[in-house]
């Protein structure tokens, strides 16, 4: 049986598939890749990839192939890649031999990279998905992150389709676009204006649940943040905590939220936001829902 043995895993490397939607009422957010487009591109590199792949974080990943040969696609962010000591380009497709050592090392950009393979990862489906939910502790490798020593076993080979060299979606440099949130009216006009005109920065506190922003201009410093009756949360919601800290809720978000949400990152800009490293400055630009929809088409 073909498998890979994890030799080194950065924090919070997890198994992910497309996601586990539809369970908010049961208290489970959908999870899935932080950068969905990169996850899909990694699959396209393979040409016929299993539904489940590995999401790893900026520290990278090192593993050994055991049992049999394996085709792999990797994409997302910008990482160093070597196979049996030979440097490779990133992103890439590679055929790995039994005994091969793959070393993915930190690179200049991105928080998340993806590995997809030409076969399915052999972990049980939990509620219809193999995605790891760090908040619910289900899916993937027993609901937890991968650690050194783990053996990820493979099952059935995925149906072959021609491998592609996916074109990375043109990386937009401008502001992160948002639609106004369900509690935007709870903030006064000057605060809403400054939310758009001032910049924020990605803080060091980020994970699959949320990305805290540094509010150096103090946009929310004086705001009175009331605790509200909680409503359902969606990925991209920008919630202002009681101490005025803005946090963008990500794929493993809490299912409901009781702090005011001023805006929601549009689907088209979510992946880009997920890849912004701590210290990166960003601005928000409000757009209409109709505009956001047109970008998805």
């Amino acid at each position: 049986m073909t498998s890979i043995r994890i030799l080194r895993a950065g924090p919070l490397a997890t198994l992910q598939d497309a996601r586990r939607p539809g369970l908010l009422r049961h208290g489970i957010s959908a999870s899935g890749p932080m950068d969905r487009s990169a996850f899909e591109r990694a699959g396209a590199w393979v040409g016929g990839a299993g539904t489940t792949g590995i999401e790893f974080t900026a520290a990278g990943l090192r593993f050994a192939v055991e049992g049999g040969a394996l085709a792999m696609g990797c994409d997302g962010g910008s990482f160093g890649l070597s196979i049996d000591g030979a440097e490779k380009s990133w992103p890439a497709r590679a055929v790995l031999k039994p005994g091969s050592i793959v070393d993915i090392t930190p690179g200049p950009a991105g928080n998340y990279g993806y590995l997809r393979f030409d076969r399915e990862i052999d972990v049980p489906l939990v509620l219809g998905s193999r995605a790891t939910s760090s908040i619910a502790g289900i899916g993937g490798m027993g609901g937890r992150a991968l650690v050194g020593g783990d053996v990820v076993a493979f099952g059935e080979t995925a149906p072959r389709v021609p491998s592609q060299h996916p074109r990375p979606s043109a990386v937009r440099q401008g502001p992160i676009r948002v639609t106004w949130g369900i509690h935007a009216d709870r903030f006064d006009n000057p605060t809403r204006q400054r939310f758009v005109s001032e910049g924020f920065a990605i803080s060091a506190q980020l994970d699959r649940m949320g990305v805290r922003l540094a509010d150096r201009a103090g946009v929310f410093a004086g705001a009175t943040i009331l605790s509200l009756v909680s409503d359902a949360v969606v990925p991209g919601d920008i919630q202002i905590l009681g101490d005025g800290t803005p946090i963008v809720l990500m794929r493993d978000h809490q299912p409901t939220g009781g702090y005011p949400r001023i805006a929601t990152v549009i689907s088209a800009d979510f992946d880009r936001l997920a890849q912004l490293r701590p210290g990166t400055e960003l601005k928000f630009e409000p757009v209409t829902v109709a505009h956001a929809e047109a970008l998805n088409r």
Partner: peptide, 23 residues
């Protein structure tokens, strides 16, 4: 429609944007 989730005083309805617009 993709999901219906009731909460204390609200209901979230998620839809498939490839099938239907918000409006």
């Amino acid at each position: 429609v993709a999901e219906v989730a009731p909460n204390l005083v609200s209901v979230m309805l998620r839809y498939d944007p490839s099938q239907i617009t918000f409006d």
